[in-house]
Write a protein that binds this DNA or RNA. Structure first.
Ligand SMILES: [Mn+2]
Ligand SMILES: [Mn+2]
Ligand SMILES: [Zn+2]
Ligand SMILES: [Zn+2]
Lengths: 138, 138
DNA sequence: TCCTTATTGAAAAACATTTTCAATAAGTAT
DNA sequence: ATACTTATTGAAAATGTTTTTCAATAAGGA
């Protein structure tokens, strides 16, 4: 999804299109690895010098609400964000360079049915994430 | 695993058995939901009044090193810990009361092979976590 | 161009975690 | 039991991150 579509989403939800937001959106949208707020700040500031870190936090918050980005959980920390996958997808992360890819096609029906039977839980959702080495790094 | 086994693990690794550590270990070991450091502090302090929050952090750090506890990642936050599963197990969490259960038997071979083929990644590890409602809460 | 108000960045506050440090107590040797 | 060594402790301070406050600004509609 191009950065313009993100900006359109923001506008359609009543948010104003500012230089700060454009810089943040363009940075996150075109990066294929998870970025922390400070990383977004450093990168986006090259596009818009006056940008404040507070605005990065506020913009990430809105982008997450609109489901344009999602938080990435990792052993080293869970403060990073990445452009969200479309539909039912999960993340595959390179443990060396952080390069992220999405995949789909996971079918956990059988598993969750068996677990529901064994545990008495009603299963509503799942998190699945793969770690490995990307083609470049391996 | 009983609390004594945890204490034994600590002792075997050269750590001293103190009142503070006993209080933390007993608290975390017998609780079946994820606890934050402050929650551990509040609960363990009932067993040992002089306990300091700093020591809770330090003890949790050691228990994690020894793989007796593991960090629990959730949408609301990732600062909570729970007694670790044995062998290859994953967590199932009640979204209402936090009650946790472990399950095993997930077989992702087919999936990861297909993804490795499609993406060029060499897959080394996976995180899987289920969310739902426990028998009591549903 | 004017007007309203959402948005901004800076500063301060709040919060979570880590480090520093002198006092204490666990475990071992005597 | 006692003495000794030093890992461990809690309090305080420091650090790092995220949120709140607030007056100035600028986006977008009239
Ligand atoms: Mn899935
Ligand atoms: Mn598994
Ligand atoms: Zn890589
Ligand atoms: Zn429950």
């Amino acid at each position: 999804m191009p950065a313009d579509a993100w900006l359109e989403q923001l506008r359609d939800n009543g948010y104003r299109l500012t230089k700060a937001r454009r810089a943040v959106v363009e940075t996150v949208e075109k990066t294929t690895r998870a970025l922390t707020p400070v990383e977004v700040f450093d990168m986006a500031r090259k596009k818009y010098r006056a940008l404040g870190l507070v605005t990065v936090y506020r913009t990430l918050e809105k982008l997450e609400e609109l489901r344009l980005i999602q938080r990435v959980h990792q052993p080293q920390g869970c403060q990073a964000f990445i452009a969200a996958g479309v539909g039912h997808q999960h993340l595959l992360l390179c443990q060396n360079c952080g390069q992220a890819a999405f995949f789909d096609g996971d079918d956990l029906e059988m598993l969750t049915n068996a677990i529901a039977r064994n545990t008495g839980y009603q299963i509503q959702d799942h998190w699945l994430q793969l770690f490995g080495l990307c083609a470049n790094c391996r």
